[in-house]
């Protein structure tokens, strides 16, 4: 009897944890520079970062695909290096840019993947029917995956992972390259899975995605963790509560600096007033100049802008 698994299942509050995780690749590139991170069970957690920040490396290490150079990692209390088989029984992963097999139907994908993981044919068939039903894929059960849209293909891959009933599901950039409708299809699946009490760890560089589906998030930049928190409590991470987006045409960003911190992002001009008084003065200034202005509470995008964009620009200077 696996006493350890019973003990862990009932007491582990952490779906996964990493301590000073370092990864140096064979070519000397340091992808992770001592990541320490903890994710609670039963939550949707997102690791956010730009391309090449180290998100996939972290996910591949935690899912036992890649060995860390140093540091420790645990999934549901099991060590990812020393107790690899225990970890693998309890996780499922959808890798970045993964694709279904063209000549298999949706149903076959899920069923054979479950059998590969050791389920009997009858168990696999039953779980497949349930997951296809739950994820609104029933009507495509007999459709070859080569005939599905990009969004549905991703949905099939997520269904494969969900059907395993693994305690922790890892999704590496599950919506990259998808149009907004397809992206919503995948979000819907993630939300439904999370409601069943399982933990979901996903990586993304889409800030809207984090706000739409995640409970907690961490921001990684150049292999280092630069922010971590709950999506609903972003204001604790930042020194500002509000942001203002100002029409950039005919305005001199320098002039706006007296109303708060000004950041130009392409054709967008964002101002972070430090207090209500500055917000009020900014509004009056824009009204007087005839510039469009809109206020909104700070969100995950602002954490990204502050910690990655501004920090990166400062470092370059």
């Amino acid at each position: 009897m696996d006493n350890r698994s019973t003990f862990t299942y009932h007491t582990a509050l952490e779906a996964l944890s990493a301590e000073r995780l370092v990864k140096v690749y064979g070519n000397g590139f340091c992808a992770l520079k001592g990541i320490t991170l903890s994710v609670n069970s039963g939550t949707v957690f997102s690791l956010l970062g730009r391309n090449g920040a180290g998100k996939t490396t972290f996910l591949r290490i935690m899912t036992t695909q890649l060995l860390p150079t140093s540091g420790t990692g645990r999934v549901l209390g099991y060590d990812i290096v020393k107790e690899v088989n225990d970890v693998r029984k309890r996780i499922a992963v959808v890798p970045q840019e993964s694709k279904p097999m063209y000549l298999l139907t949706v149903e076959e994908h899920v069923k054979y993947y479950l059998m590969m993981r050791g389920f009997s044919m009858s168990e696999a068939s039953e779980k497949t029917r349930k997951v296809l039903d739950d994820l609104d894929l029933k009507e495509y059960a007999d459709t070859l995956c080569m005939k599905l849209s990009g969004g549905l293909k991703r949905k099939v891959l997520v269904a494969m992972a969900v059907a395993t009933e693994a305690d922790v599901i890892f999704l590496d950039e599950p919506t990259t390259g998808l149009d907004p409708i397809a992206r919503r299809l995948v979000w819907d699946v993630i939300n439904r899975t999370a409601k069943s009490g399982r933990s979901i760890f996903l990586t993304t560089h889409n800030m809207g995605e984090v706000e739409a589906i995640a409970d907690g998030f961490a921001l990684i930049n150049d292999g280092e963790l630069v922010a971590q928190g709950c999506v609903d409590e972003v204001q604790r991470i930042l020194p500002y509560k509000m942001r203002a987006e100002v029409q950039i045409i005919a305005s001199n960003p320098g002039e706006l600096a007296e109303f708060g911190e000004v950041i130009t992002l392409g054709r967008r001009l964002i101002v972070y007033p430090r207090n209500e008084e500055e917000s009020k003065r900014l509004y009056e200034y824009c009204t007087e100049k005839g510039l469009k202005i809109s206020f909104s509470p700070v969100g995950v995008e602002d954490v990204f802008i502050r910690k990655v964009f501004v920090h990166g620009a400062d470092e370059e200077r």
């Binding site: 591949r60 899912t63 695909q65 693998r88 996780i91 499922a92 959808v94 840019e97 694709k99 993947y113």
Partner: peptide, 22 residues
């Protein structure tokens, strides 16, 4: 490389020997 299916297999209970035999 193309489908990333092997990554899904590695992060699952299947062993490399069983994968190779299959």
């Amino acid at each position: 490389v193309e489908l990333k299916f092997q990554d899904m297999a590695v992060a699952s209970p299947i062993s490399p020997t069983v994968y190779m035999i299959g």
